[in-house]
Simulated scan of single mutants.
Amino acid sequence: MSDWKRSGVCLCHSSTTTGSDFCLRAGVRKHNSAVDVYHSTAGEAALPLLGLCEVAIEERKSDQRTHILILHTEAGHSDVSQAEWFNKSAWVHAVQICNLERIGHVDLLLALALGFDFVFLQKLPFEHGAADQSKEVELAQMMGGEERLELFVSQLELRNSMAKLPRTGGRWPYRRPVPGPNRRATARACATVLMPGVHQPLNLPQDAPYGTVELDLSACTMCQSCVWLCPTDALSIGEHKCELVFVESRCIQCGMCQSICPEDALKLRPRIDPKPSADTQQVLHQVEPFRCTSCGVPFVAKSMMDRLLARIWGRKGVRASEEVQELIPLCHSCQIQKQQGGNTKPAPLMIKPRQVSRQLL
């Protein structure tokens, strides 16, 4: 006997929005009494299927039947209902989604790693949404959901696809993933669980938001432009300002570091690395530090200081006063001490206030 459950997930931007006839918050629904509507709160909105998956994993522990998740819109309700008559063995949870386009690869990976053997997702009808949806599905497939995730257009496609599935899934083969503090961390945790035998990074499509950077050491000048522009702090400067440090799990492959690099030394490489090393700092480049001429503390890369001094002292370089030339090879603390050390000369970088004469009227 089939075991089909019905529920709904509303992904409206506002709790007061009633939306259109396709919205689960609308006052009139064709099967109002047949579904339990799930309203995601602000804290749960990041992972709207988490509660559903928590129920599924508990069912899956005691029931070895194949567990199937079907995500559809109100328009697909009829197709899903017709497909129900042709499957009498699987444990199926059909979920009507409001704003189905907001279901991404993170939600699909979570379902596959937390209780569901297969996920069927209704294909969006409009061209732009369908293209984005296909990219999300492809990304989820490459991150561990291969052959367990499929799009469907009609009840015939859904029925035929479900007919090919095994009746039993056996013992649940995956350890429980731990949702991270954000969607990216959750996706990585699910991918690690879904690919237990993979110990090397897997290449992803060019527009994937996961990956690493490749650095041409011979071209990098440690100018730090990439560090200043990185929006996620995936790139940073390490000890003594002479190390370029990278954390792969933070990289979103936005390309800003590549676009700002004046030497074209950085290249993006989309991939997913399931190893824990992706969360740790890796030194991409390390150069000789320049030490403060006063206290001896290293505070900048020697190559950068050499180029700066060459410009100042060179014939075609930037002209600077003697006071400025004395401050350049000093660290920040020593610069302040020198400027405030009782020198009678005015600070070289300060602007002398203009004297304004006043006449009595």
Rank of each mutant, 00 (worst) to 15 (best):
G180S: 10
D79P: 01
R167L: 12
H105D: 09
M143E: 03
Q133R: 09
V198K: 14
P173T: 07
Y210S: 07
K267N: 08
F118W: 07
T221L: 11
C242T: 05
G341D: 05
A278Y: 02
R271L: 14
L108W: 00
W85R: 15
G238Y: 01
S78M: 06
E147K: 15
P274Y: 01
I272M: 14
R358C: 02
S134T: 12
C295R: 14
E157M: 14
A83Q: 04
F299D: 06
A187C: 11
A131V: 12
Q253I: 08
F120I: 08
A26E: 11
C254M: 08
R250D: 03
D36I: 10
L268W: 02
F246M: 04
L204F: 07
K352S: 07
V55D: 15
G255C: 05
Q141I: 01
S20N: 12
C257T: 04
A90L: 10
R319Y: 04
G8H: 04
G115N: 03
M1T: 09
F152A: 07
L266G: 03
F246Y: 14
I68P: 02
A75T: 11
V95L: 05
A187V: 09
R307C: 04
C23G: 09
R354S: 03
L50A: 14
A265Q: 05
T232N: 15
K5Y: 02
L124H: 14
V247W: 01
P196Y: 06
A45V: 09
G170R: 07
L244G: 03
D279I: 00
M256S: 12
H128D: 13
V227A: 08
S2R: 13
G314R: 09
S249V: 02
E138S: 13
H285A: 13
T344M: 06
L360Q: 13
L156H: 13
S357H: 08
Q122G: 06
V247A: 06
P353G: 01
P209I: 14
Q335A: 00
L114I: 00
H240A: 12
T18H: 12
